[in-house]
Write a protein that binds this DNA or RNA. Structure first.
Length: 194
DNA sequence: CCCGGAAGCA
DNA sequence: TGCTTCCGGG
């Protein structure tokens, strides 16, 4: 039977994604970035929900750890995910199992003690989806601390891209506002907490 | 709730 | 490969 649920729920938005007001590289959201599967990825979908204000009562970023988010309405998130994937029997139990598979892939980790709360590992997410032609040569001087810094995100503030080659910490000092968290995530997170 | 093994599916 | 489904266990 033909499934038309793709047209329902959340629409697929084009370019320029924003997370809590800061730019996020568009290639990180492209399904083509993940070889082998052109289906929508769960982490992609979660990011999509988080990006939209109309779902703030369902899922939202949490103050505190950067990348930390809370699923305020697990049933609704599962319903929306099931709609997108044409799996009407989806529920939070199954969805959370899929999220748990991200632990070993280091895309997500659980914030223990906090209910329905997970944290994105942005450095892993970016390095895993950064196209090869945008990854700097390994022979290039190790200017930054983390492996994610090998990437050159397209939508990151110009100040980061241009000055990132000199010194890391002065750049962070010059950055203000919402750009800071991403810069910190990229520059100061060599390896995420296990 | 949260975890992760196991099997199955496209 | 990236889930989906099911489930025993903590």
């Amino acid at each position: 039977m033909y499934c038309r649920c793709f047209s329902e729920g959340i629409q697929t938005t084009p370019v320029n994604y924003w997370i809590s007001g800061l730019a996020f590289p568009d290639w990180a959201f492209k399904a083509e970035s993940s070889p082998g599967s052109r289906q929508i990825q769960l982490w992609h979908f979660i990011l999509e929900l988080l990006q939209k204000e109309e779902f703030r009562h369902v899922i939202a970023w949490q103050q505190g750890e950067y990348g930390e988010f809370v699923i305020k309405d697990p049933d609704e998130v599962a319903r929306l995910w099931g709609r997108r994937k044409c799996k009407p029997q989806m529920n939070y139990d199954k969805l959370s199992r899929a999220l748990r598979y991200y632990y070993n892939k280091r895309i997500l980790y659980k914030t223990k003690g906090k209910r329905f709360t997970y944290t994105f590992n942005f450095s892993k997410l970016i390095i895993a989806n950064c196209p090869p032609w945008k990854v700097w040569a390994p022979s290039a001087p190790r200017l930054l601390l983390g492996s994610a810094a090998m990437c050159q995100p397209t939508s990151v503030p110009v100040a980061v891209q241009s000055e990132v080659g000199t010194e890391a910490t002065p750049v962070l000092r010059t950055l203000t506002g919402p750009a800071l968290p991403l810069a910190r995530s990229l520059l100061l997170s060599p390896e995420p907490p296990r």
